[in-house]
Design a protein around this nucleic acid. Structure first.
Length: 242
DNA sequence: TAAGTTGTTCGGGG
DNA sequence: CCCCCGAACAACTT
């Protein structure tokens, strides 16, 4: 379920639990949960792919990883890795990792890099990218300290829309292209989010897992060198700078 | 049925 | 210290 937009959508759906008191907390995860019992869930926030549950005595960071899922007032057959039960309703996390922040929220997170935050700061993000001169742009896009909330789908789509080849080297990319990439990343993340809100699903792709891109050009699939993840791109449309 | 998947963290070796 | 790699974690779909 998890790229930035899915987490933001999840946050929206959890709104009814805000200011409600936790009756029972648990799960098979390692984090102790007793400290939340009887406490009010004061706020729900996100940073990139992190879902943040704010209590007066601590903040829980939930990460869905690759297979994680959070159900509201529903259960699966398998055990919950993390859950909160309220007088009315429950939040059930499956294969999620939960941990308690060791520092206050504002010391842990910088929302200037969060692609779906109002504080997203294009100039700042650009400066972070430029510190990584010799890296592949495909790797930079999945760096959560630079593009918080970008996952493989957004990466593929943003590169396609910007007309930028995934194997391009940062220092060789013209400034205008880099600007375009940042813009397209945020734009596509918003499309992703809007579609989730409208339909509960997301399947609007122009290149990801396709045989032919939206412009009709053939799509190439490659495994990225370091991460071995699949990247889909159009040789015809996406310019390689190296 | 076996492979593939919206992701991250850890430890070891170079 | 940085970088790279593989393993581990799990569930669900095709």
């Amino acid at each position: 379920m998890p790229e930035g937009p899915s987490i933001l959508f999840l946050k929206d759906n959890l709104a009814p639990f805000k200011n409600k008191v936790v009756k029972k907390a648990g799960g098979y995860g390692k984090m102790p949960t007793a400290w939340m019992k009887g406490k009010k869930l004061l706020d729900i926030q996100t940073w990139g792919k992190h879902l943040l549950l704010v209590f007066a005595n601590g903040v829980v960071k939930i990460h869905l990883g690759l297979f994680g899922d959070v159900l509201i007032n529903e259960r699966k057959k398998v055990n919950r890795s993390f859950y909160l039960e309220f007088a009315k309703g429950e939040i059930n996390g499956y294969v999620v990792s939960a941990s308690k922040l060791k520092k206050p929220l504002k010391e842990v997170y910088d929302w200037r890099t969060d692609i779906l935050s109002e504080q997203f700061d294009k100039v700042y993000v650009k400066s972070l990218i430029k510190e990584k001169q010799t890296k592949l742009i495909a790797d930079i896009m999945m760096d959560q300290d630079i593009f918080s909330g970008v996952g493989n789908k957004i990466r593929n789509e943003a590169l396609y829309r910007a007309g930028l080849h995934p194997m391009s080297i940062v220092e060789k990319i013209p400034a205008a292209k880099l600007n375009k990439l940042i813009d397209e990343t945020v734009k596509y993340a918003k499309i992703f989010y809007r579609q989730l809100r409208k339909t509960g699903k997301h399947d609007f792709f122009e290149v990801y897992q396709l045989e032919y891109a939206a412009d009709g050009s053939a799509v190439t699939m490659q495994f990225l060198p370091k991460t071995k993840r699949k990247i889909y791109f159009s040789e015809h449309r996406q310019q390689l700078y190296k």
